[in-house]
Amino acid sequence: MSESEKSGLIIRILGEGQYDVGDDALDRLNELDAAVEAAIEAGDEAAFRPALEALLEGVRTAGGTHALDTFDESDLILPPGDASMDDVRSMLADDGLIPG
């Protein structure tokens, strides 16, 4: 698929692989991302872990596995499910893990 035909994003979950996620899923993923960011800002480990898992599961559910035989660059990179709050904090941009 050429860059001009591409719709959506390629999202990598570290240690797991890449997923093709359509633009129609981004609003929901941004909601899940906001919960991760809120837990980190509050220093709430009890809320952080389920929020991160929900975000990763949202990507898995909304996306299809990206072809393994291609060498496409990821548009976004998410931490693995076992990442610490400090690890995820270091990956956060001004608008979270998922821009928008």
Score class of each variant (00 low, 15 high):
residue 19 Y to Q: 07
residue 83 A to N: 11
residue 22 G to C: 00
residue 83 A to P: 11
residue 26 L to M: 15
residue 33 D to W: 04
residue 41 E to R: 14
residue 72 D to L: 11
residue 54 A to S: 12
residue 31 E to N: 14
residue 51 A to K: 02
residue 88 V to K: 09
residue 92 L to I: 03
residue 22 G to T: 04
residue 88 V to W: 08
residue 55 L to C: 01
residue 100 G to Q: 11
residue 95 D to R: 13
residue 58 G to Q: 02
residue 95 D to Q: 12
residue 67 A to H: 12
residue 65 T to S: 06
residue 80 P to I: 04
residue 99 P to N: 03
residue 45 E to L: 14
residue 6 K to P: 00
residue 43 G to M: 08
residue 92 L to M: 09
residue 15 G to M: 06
residue 96 G to D: 03
residue 73 E to G: 04
residue 18 Q to A: 07
residue 56 L to N: 01
residue 97 L to I: 12
residue 45 E to Y: 13
residue 100 G to N: 14
residue 87 D to A: 08
residue 12 R to C: 07
residue 7 S to D: 10
residue 8 G to L: 07
residue 50 P to V: 03
residue 72 D to Q: 13
residue 20 D to I: 03
residue 96 G to K: 04
residue 52 L to V: 08
residue 6 K to L: 05
residue 41 E to H: 14
residue 62 A to N: 09
residue 100 G to A: 13
residue 23 D to H: 06
residue 59 V to N: 05
residue 81 G to I: 07
residue 99 P to A: 10
residue 73 E to V: 06
residue 33 D to T: 03
residue 78 L to A: 03
residue 39 A to W: 01
residue 63 G to L: 09
residue 48 F to E: 02
residue 84 S to M: 06
residue 91 M to H: 03
residue 29 L to Y: 14
residue 54 A to P: 01
residue 2 S to T: 15
residue 40 I to N: 04
residue 90 S to G: 01
residue 52 L to D: 05
residue 91 M to W: 07
residue 86 D to E: 15
residue 64 G to L: 08
residue 54 A to D: 14
residue 41 E to Q: 15
